[in-house]
Design a protein around this nucleic acid. Structure first.
Lengths: 228, 228
DNA sequence: GTGAAATTGGACAGAACGGTCTATTTATCG
DNA sequence: CGATAAATAGACCGTTCTGTCCAATTTCAC
């Protein structure tokens, strides 16, 4: 793990040494082009188990041995795919960011066709999320909580996740005709962040619905004011 | 620490066994009434050091030995005042809640005399907070992140902290003449929570100012709509 | 089948963890 | 002063942690 005394994360820069002895098997690279399919089942299994345990019990509190036991993978397999626990944490967060964000956007766009409706759908999806019994807070907020150093890779991934989500919201705000899309998006992201965290910390089940109501007010204010 | 396998916090209920051999020295209880003064300097020092380290490095990542070294207190002194590390965490959070919330309210009331001004002052103070170089996120969000179990005492303290802050905001909203003070307060608390967390996770320095702008819109909407 | 790579289980190391115990010193108050 | 309680340093215990090493086995491409 990162040495908390020096505060220097040891895996900040990309891979230096190859992880596996040679090139990992991965795609056979047939000229015909066989679809990659299950590239590395063990790796995926590790990442799935890891992110689940990190979400449930925290990053520091989730031991390697626990992850291995739960995933049914041998220790050396883990250390062939990842350099360290920090590296595993980082990979799990990155994966969760990509898949989670894609799924989120997809759900939003499926729920409403117009930008205003999509901005509101944002909060409907959050409502579904926080009402879920398995809801354990935003994994990226949790990551930033355990890795306070802004230069820590895990914190960086968390910040980037929030930034990308905000960019999407700004695009919607622009499409909706807001005079200052970035300003509106920022305000809506405040409500989003607030809803997720109040739901988690205070156990407020209705946080997302309140956020939606407030969002509607802010949207109308921002759009109506400059559109009229 | 709490056994993460069973998930059962062992210090949920109040003190069962006395911590010190006899009654701690504390106030001499002279009939004349000598002011308590420094009741237990060591205990306070431990709590101060502990909360600082917990904020900086996290709860799990802050070892007992580190806290002792930093505070210059012997290990047995700690275990005479607190039953366990979990107990120390809890006491530190409780103390931070009380002093922090009092200071917050005091600053708000000093900054503006009227309820509407005070609701906005809320966000000015948050702005000061998050702009501070030493800002490390909300300790209670951090606590809830590391102790996900809603029944864990630390999570409970965090939830109570948010609830009390929300109650204060609701009182202001009522005084300001909002038709539904609880609803407005909830919306403003969403902005508060969002500002603190976006500032921390995404490093957004302007989050609190954006929150203030949005808060003004929501306040005017809630008050003007029902007051007219 | 053959050979190379991936995976396995388990032992192991070295450090850090929370917590206990004891013997000793320091401070406080009647 | 003398009694009593608080605080001290440090050894110590059992556990858990990340990470390493190895010999044996399985998987897969050809």
């Amino acid at each position: 793990m990162t040495d908390i005394k020096t505060g220097t994360p040891e895996i900040a820069r990309g891979p230096a040494k190859p992880l596996s002895r040679k090139v990992p098997r991965k795609a056979p690279a047939k000229p015909g082009g066989t679809p990659a399919g299950k590239r590395s089942g063990k790796r995926d299994k590790l990442l799935d188990t890891a992110i689940a345990l990190f979400c449930k019990n925290g990053f520091h509190a989730s031991g390697i041995d626990r992850i291995l036991k739960e995933s049914g993978v041998a220790k050396m397999t883990l250390y062939n795919h990842f350099r360290s626990k920090d590296d595993l944490i980082l990979a799990a967060l990155r994966r969760y960011d990509e898949t989670g964000r894609k799924a989120f956007v997809k759900a939003v766009e499926k729920m409403a066709p117009d930008p205003r409706g999509r901005m509101l759908a944002f909060f409907d999806i959050v409502d579904n999320w926080v009402q879920d019994e398995t809801f354990l807070g935003c994994p990226f907020v949790n990551a930033a909580s355990e890795f306070h150093d802004k230069d820590h890779p895990a914190h960086r991934v968390a910040a980037e996740h929030k930034r990308l989500l905000g960019s999407y919201m700004a695009r919607l705000a622009g499409d909706a005709g807001a005079g200052d899309p970035d300003a509106l998006a920022r305000q809506l992201m405040l409500l989003y962040e607030g809803a997720v965290n109040l739901a988690h910390v205070a156990g407020d089940r209705g946080a997302a619905r309140s956020a939606r109501t407030a969002a509607a007010v802010l949207i109308d204010h921002a759009v109506g004011r400059t559109a009229s």
